[in-house]
Amino acid sequence: MAEVTLSIGGRAYKLACRDGEEEDLRAAGGLLESRVSSLMEAHGAVAEPRLLLMAALLVSGELLERKATEARLSPFPAPQQLPNLAQYEALAARAEALAQRLEEAASAS
């Protein structure tokens, strides 16, 4: 188990993570620190729990916004828009019937 020390809002936090995940944790901490710094500049002295909550909500909002944008731009339908199994089975049955008709037409010629 690895340990990483993050500095967020002027305080050091020692966190454990799996070996190999240190850089990801540092990157996440850097993102949170940038939001906390912006909030501290904009709002001055705010209680630490409230400051961290506000920063986490900002990051969460950005993530949700990015997911929504990606969903709008994706050429693939969202899983809830995909046909269900019965629809696939009906489509397969239609394709088989069409293939059979084509084979019959080809053999009659």
Rank of each mutant, 00 (worst) to 15 (best):
D24G: 12
R18M: 07
E33N: 11
A68M: 01
K14P: 10
L64V: 07
S34W: 03
E21Y: 10
R50F: 13
K67C: 05
A12P: 02
R66Q: 09
G61D: 07
S60I: 00
D24R: 13
E33C: 04
S38Q: 12
E21Q: 13
V36F: 00
S37Y: 06
R35G: 11
E65R: 06
P49V: 08
A16E: 12
L51D: 04
M54F: 12
D19E: 14
A56R: 00
L39A: 03
A28Q: 01
A45C: 10
A55N: 06
L15E: 02
E65Y: 03
E41I: 08
L31K: 09
A45D: 13
R11P: 07
A55V: 08
G9S: 07
P49W: 08
C17I: 02
G30D: 01
D19K: 12
K67T: 05
A42Y: 08
A68S: 04
E33L: 00
S7G: 06
E62F: 01
E41F: 10
L63P: 01
A45T: 14
L25K: 00
E23D: 13
E48W: 09
K14M: 10
S37H: 06
R66C: 04
T69K: 10
E62H: 02
L53A: 15
A12D: 15
K67G: 03
D24T: 13
H43L: 14
A55F: 07
L57H: 10
R11K: 15
C17M: 04
G10S: 00
A42S: 15
C17N: 05
L58Q: 14
G30A: 01
V59N: 02
V46W: 12
G20D: 03
A16M: 08
D24C: 06
L53K: 05
V59M: 02
R18W: 04
V46N: 09
E65H: 06
M54S: 10
G20N: 06
L31M: 11
L52Y: 04
Y13V: 03
G44V: 08
S7P: 01
A16P: 03
E41K: 14
L52W: 04
S7N: 12
A12F: 07
E21P: 04
M54H: 09
S38V: 10
R26E: 07
R18A: 14
V46I: 15
E33Q: 09
E65I: 00
A55L: 08
A28I: 02
L57P: 10
R11T: 11
V59E: 05
A68T: 03
R11E: 14
